[in-house]
């Protein structure tokens, strides 16, 4: 008999070594997340995937599944708090969906819709953040970076490079590029690298592809993030 955990009353099998989110995804249960991607080492920083494990808050993307776990994933409290964490990400950066090329394809935006977020709730930071358009094919708009480190991990773990890193402390944190000048142009990033395409927001964009897909035909224009994530990430678990 396989081992099981319980999420919102549903019995879910897991294998040793699986995290809670891995077991959940394989069983078709969506847990909201932004920094998690099953292809890469879990990071556990965005905290959107926080679930209650036997009453205690744990990050589902890093916490190992184990026998006897009674997990709450959907509750008013968790949903409200995840919404506030998402709002924190919105006010920390400068996110203006209507003018962002990523709108409709953006995980941050889609998660916000999923959680029923209708305003930013917290006061904005309005930090001055820069744009690095030096690379011929790829640009970074730091206004939209949420420090999920997916580009960092993709570059290391998928592309075999080390193009990106997060630097600084606290609210001063920022995405940096591993090149002598600090500019993307002088890094060894290639437009075909996984790291150039992994950004869950509009912080890393491919040049000259803007609006190739018109608004209205984009991923989240037609499907909710839970369906999209389960289809994409459930599949990659099976690989």
């Amino acid at each position: 008999m396989s081992k099981t955990i319980v999420i919102d009353g549903k019995v879910i099998p897991f294998e040793d070594g699986q995290t809670i989110i891995q077991a959940a995804t394989a069983a078709g249960v969506y847990i909201p997340h932004l920094c998690h991607n099953p292809k890469f080492t879990p990071h556990g920083s965005c905290k959107l995937c926080t679930v209650k494990v036997n009453g205690r808050n744990c990050s589902a993307c890093t916490f190992p599944a184990s026998e006897g776990q009674n997990i709450t994933n959907i509750s008013e409290e968790l949903n409200d708090d995840r919404e506030k964490i998402t709002q924190m990400l919105f006010v920390e950066g400068n996110h203006f969906c209507p003018s962002c090329e990523k709108t409709g394809n953006c995980n941050l935006q889609a998660v916000a819709y999923h959680l029923g977020m209708t305003d930013n709730h917290f006061p904005h930071f309005f930090e001055n953040r820069e744009v690095d358009a030096s690379h011929p094919d790829v640009m970074i708009d730091h206004n939209r970076c949420i420090f999920c480190t997916l580009c960092v991990r993709a570059s290391q773990q998928e592309d075999g490079k080390n193009v990106f890193a997060i630097s600084g402390r606290g609210i001063e944190k920022r995405l940096v590029v591993n090149s002598p000048s600090g500019l993307l142009r002088d890094s060894d990033l290639d437009v075909n690298d996984c790291a150039a395409h992994i950004c869950p927001t509009g912080a890393i964009l491919i040049k000259r592809t803007g609006y190739n897909v018109p608004i209205g035909q984009r991923i989240f224009d037609h499907a909710h993030i839970d369906t999209v994530a389960l289809a994409a990430e459930g599949a990659s678990h099976d690989e």
């Binding site: 924190m88 990400l89 006010v91 920390e92 006061p123 949420i146 420090f147 402390r169 606290g170």
Partner: peptide
């Protein structure tokens, strides 16, 4: 705390700065 937060996770990175404000 806002000064000493390492900035790794959202609730502490953004939260301690919001709390300060």
């Amino acid at each position: 705390f806002a000064h000493e937060s390492c900035g790794f996770c959202t609730p502490c990175r953004v939260g301690t700065s919001l709390l300060k404000k």
